[in-house]
Amino acid sequence: MANQPLPSDKHIQRRYLRQIQLPGFGEAGQQSLGEARVLIVGLGGLGCAVAQYLTAAGVGNITLLDGDDIALSNLQRQILFDEASIGANKADVAKQKLQQLNSQVQITAIDRHLDLPLAETLIASADLILDCTDNFTTRYLINDVAHFYKKNWVYASVLGFAGQVASFNTRLSCFRCLYPNVSEVPNCNQAGVLGVLPGIVGNLQALMAIQMLCCEQTCNQLVRFSGNDYSLQTIGLAKSRQCLICSGQQEYFQLHSHRCDESAQPRAITASQIKTFIEQHPNAKLADIRSPAEYQEHNAGGINIPLSDFESWFAGQVSQPLILLCQTGKRCQWLLGRLPASSTARSPVVYLEGGLDALTHPTHSLHLLKAL
């Protein structure tokens, strides 16, 4: 990919002529797609269809995430793969196939399943997220982190002869408004699915994604498709007062904190205590655990170690006092709850209570942090 020449305006015009011709789309719509960063979670039947059409449409940057390997039973519906691909990782094979379709699209393949630290990094840097998985746990995780970062996303599911797609502008409603509790609905591996259904529903999902990237006109709609009578039903979605996320009762790191080490004792310091801490620990280092995009937009200095990378980075460090920093302090609190007590006992590790929000005005404390 690094050696691929940049496409000329004439090349773009020729390649995407048929969609540029569309009223209301035009060159501005194509430019929006070319600048977009899309995360596709899951490369099953839905993900294969979505990835192909977004690549063909010229979405500029696509990240593919799937930790599963290709099996014989996948080939009935996951049409990016073939018999020679069996045993290989889905994301890796999908990237190879998609690059042959459009060499100008920047495609990243990640051989992993989505977890909280990874969601923190990938969703924060994406313009749109597409859920192409088959489990509610991952959907809630995508929803909750997307809500925090104010990112739009598109959900889809299939079962038997039916499927549905929903688009979410998280300022207006979210997946928990639609499904407040974990559903016991079986997935297609348990209940079966007609192979063509993920293709139909995945294409609807890709259509929603393109429209959201260009104009957001489909936000907060649920579309249900029946393969029995070929009917489509569209339902508008609204915010629920009982929703834990939309009501502000919970944030994503609280709802997904079941892996925390409860024996650890997180320690917070206030802005007024920064000077004393630095005087006691003159070799202290400031570590900002927000995403790179957040750090670049505004920071108090120090080093940027994103939440997803922190634990591996921390394990390889020589004992050194640390002040952790995020936007509100809550991510730092969650992270300290995960670190073994033995590791934080070797040298003080604290976090700034209230985070950067506690330093919204120029203060002596802010100057102290920038000097670390």
Rank of each mutant, 00 (worst) to 15 (best):
N220M: 06
E216Q: 08
F168M: 10
C174T: 12
G192S: 02
M208Q: 01
R176L: 09
V223N: 09
C214L: 00
L178K: 11
G199T: 04
Q190S: 06
T170Y: 09
N169G: 11
V196L: 07
N220K: 08
Q221F: 03
A162Y: 14
A162H: 14
C188H: 15
F161I: 11
E184L: 06
R171I: 07
Q217L: 01
G163Q: 12
N187V: 11
F175S: 13
V196C: 03
I200A: 10
L194M: 11
V196D: 06
R171K: 14
I200H: 08
L204V: 06
F161D: 10
T218W: 00
L194F: 03
V182L: 14
R171M: 13
L194V: 10
S183P: 06
E184R: 07
I210L: 05
P186D: 08
Q217A: 09
T170R: 12
G202Q: 02
S173A: 14
V193P: 02
C219T: 08
T170V: 15
A209W: 00
P198F: 03
N187T: 08
Q205L: 01
C214I: 03
I200L: 04
C174Q: 12
P186F: 12
A191Q: 05
N220Y: 04
A166R: 13
V182W: 10
V185D: 07
R171W: 09
N169D: 15
Q205D: 04
C174A: 14
Q205W: 01
R176T: 10
V201M: 01
C188T: 12
V165D: 09
G195C: 06
E184N: 13
G199E: 03
T218Q: 10
E216N: 03
G160I: 10
Q211S: 05
V196I: 12
L207H: 02
C177G: 07
C188M: 02
C188E: 06
V182A: 11
E216A: 02
L197E: 03
T218F: 02
P180A: 13
V182E: 15
L204Q: 09
S167K: 06
Q164T: 07
T218R: 08
C215Y: 01
T218S: 08
Q164D: 14
I200S: 11
Q164A: 12
G195M: 05
N169A: 15
V201T: 02
T218G: 02
L207E: 01
